[in-house]
Simulated assay, not measured.
Amino acid sequence: MTRFVIYTPLYRENSGGIIVLHKLASLLRAMGHDVKIWPQQKPAIYELATVPGWKKAVLWAKWRALGLLGRKDLRSPYRLSVARHKDINDSIVLYPEIVAGNPLRSSKVVRWLLNKPGAISGVVDFGENDLFFFYQEKFNDWALNPDTNNRLTVTELMSDTYVSENTGTRNGQCYMVRKGKNRALDYHDKNAVRVDGVSHKELAKIFNECKYFICYDPYTMYCRYAAMCGCIPVVVPENGVTKEEWRPEIYNRYGIAYGWDDVPWAVETRPQLMEFLSESERRNEELARNFVATVEKRFSD
């Protein structure tokens, strides 16, 4: 049994990065490992030496006193345990790439590249002995991690929610901006419905009504959720980025159009996408086992 502490924000159902961090913790726990999360909002003991750290501590104490940590929108559906300071020394600590430095001062650090380093935070601050894993090849920094086997892709399908229930006529468009907020938002019809921040249950309903889902964020699970509901996802192409550069692995392009001209591809390859997704739990476990074997080998001493 290996001990892990996963550093993650509190759960939010509309954040793909947070979802997969919590999902990974649940998956490793199911494999028999001791796994706890460290909420990013909880101050580490070393942070108390700074003014921002004390402010963080006061806010965390206030949230606990008011019972806000039990709020439905912040409560992880995986029922994960929160780590204490004494758990850190004996554990491997995993940070997503947006975390700068080593807040928990762990001697065993894994970085999970859920996006290109610096793409979200603008900061790249890693340790020289960190072990890197990437969510997909597009996010890997080959200078930091030259090992192609260090892939850790975890998917949460929410297949009980995202189901195609409309076999009749579909009309109109919905669209999502997310990380595409700095792009020109001119690819959708003026009557299209914006779905940023919509709950998964309501979004599944909208996906079952609309014919097209226009997505300004080129990398999000929501495109697959749309396809699962029978809606055609259309990713707005990035200037100067080819389809193959956008998603180097062909299986990551199944069922998704990269621009309007690619809609026939999305329709034709939807069955391949459904088949690929049906194998996702098996792949989750396979990649998680490889992850554990790799980190155990690195940190065995």
Rank of each mutant, 00 (worst) to 15 (best):
residue 96 P to G: 05
residue 141 D to R: 15
residue 110 V to E: 06
residue 109 V to S: 03
residue 116 K to F: 12
residue 98 I to R: 08
residue 132 F to N: 02
residue 138 K to T: 15
residue 122 G to E: 01
residue 142 W to F: 15
residue 119 A to R: 06
residue 97 E to C: 02
residue 123 V to W: 02
residue 131 L to S: 03
residue 102 N to F: 01
residue 118 G to K: 04
residue 128 E to R: 14
residue 101 G to D: 10
residue 123 V to I: 15
residue 101 G to C: 11
residue 114 L to P: 03
residue 139 F to A: 08
residue 98 I to H: 13
residue 100 A to I: 08
residue 138 K to I: 15
residue 112 W to E: 05
residue 117 P to S: 00
residue 122 G to N: 07
residue 127 G to L: 09
residue 138 K to G: 13
residue 137 E to F: 08
residue 101 G to E: 11
residue 134 F to M: 02
residue 137 E to V: 13
residue 104 L to K: 07
residue 141 D to G: 13
residue 134 F to S: 01
residue 112 W to M: 08
residue 118 G to N: 10
residue 103 P to E: 12
residue 121 S to T: 14
residue 110 V to P: 00
residue 102 N to I: 01
residue 110 V to G: 05
residue 100 A to G: 13
residue 104 L to M: 05
residue 128 E to L: 09
residue 124 V to M: 05
residue 96 P to E: 00
residue 123 V to Y: 11
residue 96 P to F: 00
residue 112 W to N: 06
residue 139 F to I: 04
residue 127 G to S: 07
residue 108 K to G: 11
residue 115 N to Y: 13
residue 128 E to Y: 08
residue 133 F to M: 06
residue 125 D to W: 07
residue 141 D to I: 10
residue 97 E to Y: 00
residue 102 N to R: 02
residue 126 F to A: 07
residue 129 N to A: 11
residue 114 L to K: 05
residue 104 L to H: 05
residue 141 D to Y: 11
residue 141 D to W: 10
residue 118 G to T: 05
residue 112 W to S: 06
residue 129 N to P: 00
residue 135 Y to W: 08
residue 141 D to Q: 12
residue 113 L to T: 02
residue 138 K to C: 12
residue 108 K to N: 14
residue 109 V to E: 09
residue 122 G to F: 03
residue 99 V to E: 07
residue 100 A to P: 04
residue 132 F to V: 08
residue 107 S to R: 15
residue 100 A to R: 11
residue 127 G to N: 06
residue 96 P to V: 00
residue 142 W to M: 15
residue 111 R to N: 09
residue 120 I to E: 15
residue 140 N to Y: 08
residue 128 E to F: 10
residue 138 K to W: 12
residue 130 D to Y: 07
